[in-house]
Design a protein around this nucleic acid. Sequence first.
DNA 1: AAGGGAAATCATATGCGAATTGGTTAAATT
DNA 2: AATTTAACCAATTCGCATATGATTTCCCTT
Lengths: 230, 230
Amino acid sequence: MDDPGNGGHAALVQLQAYLAQMDHAGETRLPAERELSESLGVSRGDLRKALAVLEKDGRIWRHVGRGTFVGSGPVEETIGISEIAGRTNPADVMRARLIIEPEIAREAALHATLSDIASMRQSLVQTRDAGTWRQYENIDNLLHRQIAQASRNNVLLGLFDVLNAVRRTVVWGRLRSEGTRPPADHHSFADHERIVEAIAERDLGGAAAAMRLHLQQVERRLIPVREAAE
Amino acid sequence: MDDPGNGGHAALVQLQAYLAQMDHAGETRLPAERELSESLGVSRGDLRKALAVLEKDGRIWRHVGRGTFVGSGPVEETIGISEIAGRTNPADVMRARLIIEPEIAREAALHATLSDIASMRQSLVQTRDAGTWRQYENIDNLLHRQIAQASRNNVLLGLFDVLNAVRRTVVWGRLRSEGTRPPADHHSFADHERIVEAIAERDLGGAAAAMRLHLQQVERRLIPVREAAE
DNA sequence: AAGGGAAATCATATGCGAATTGGTTAAATT
DNA sequence: AATTTAACCAATTCGCATATGATTTCCCTT
């Protein structure tokens, strides 16, 4: 039993027993390696070998400074916007918007309450009254978020917020010339109205199509034409 | 000029000048109110009135403990998974998956490299070899993420990660009975193979359809039937 | 001399208290 | 009477001490 090379195996057995006993208690974090090695009566090296096996097996999860946990690892609690934004570009952001926002509009057409729709219509008026591009963009942001909120699906709303944060980080600084204001015939005004009207009429496909059209207009404006690519 | 009631206006003018001078320097954070009021030679109360005007206008953004910033506010740098997960339910998560994952599969069919596809095929084999449900779920997770990675769109990949983290938080603890292993005729095996094959054949629509079918199977398994709702 | 274990060391993460900052209220001053 | 000033509150950040997993070094046993 004390053969060299079996020490690791013995530690693995003891550790598995410990895990089974602990898993029933609902605890997910196990003691520090220094304590556990002494508690189990095995060397820290052997304990680490056993832990490595279980980690590769996906039964535990280790992280420096935090500890060792049972299960498929503590779900990453927060995600960094800049981590995503740092490795992408405006084209990919638009692609992602074109994928999820039309479907969000579709869900909104299905689930929006009358008060949701009233809020959207109020934002529509405010976009036309915007005196500066900055004001316009704020209200435009608000309107798109109101649509996401009207989907009554907090997961979609959360994904929208992430996407929006990434977008604002990626295109940061790309401000339109200050002082000027959105022209009265700006395409977005009509686009937005079509979207809200489709939602109000519970036209699921129409809402999705209107949103898709709107985003394609924005894309065309943001990225120089590249017809052949599609 | 020293009329009472005009003090606020004077402060607003000075502050706007300060903002214009600072905005060109690229700095987004302005000094603390106590310093700035002394620096501009106005009372803190008047300064705060001016700041309130600019904030309502969307030109600056204030947050306790952090400071005051120019622009439409410092983009929220991190988003908490539990904030999303705490206000949702498995049905909404599945809904969101059904919206974005098929489209991710479509993008993957368009952009996947040969090495991407090879990795997926390897995961396919491993899912069949999984000895426990826990192992199976780990590899299943990996496969879905490989597909998202193959889209070559880091925004979509980031959104997938968020969605995945939310999913794992929402259904946390809903573990299948330990010890048993996935049956050989588990529907996911065939589903996964169809998805990967469609991606390998660059069949965009097929990949999306196969993924949608797969997720609908999973949904049916997770949530008791509710045919009438659709 | 070789192998293995214990201790030292490193890099990362957390916890806590002090300092900072916007928001609010009370006192003081003119 | 009104405004400025100061004091206080609540939320946030920052720095330092501590904890933890990873890695290296040293020493002892055989």
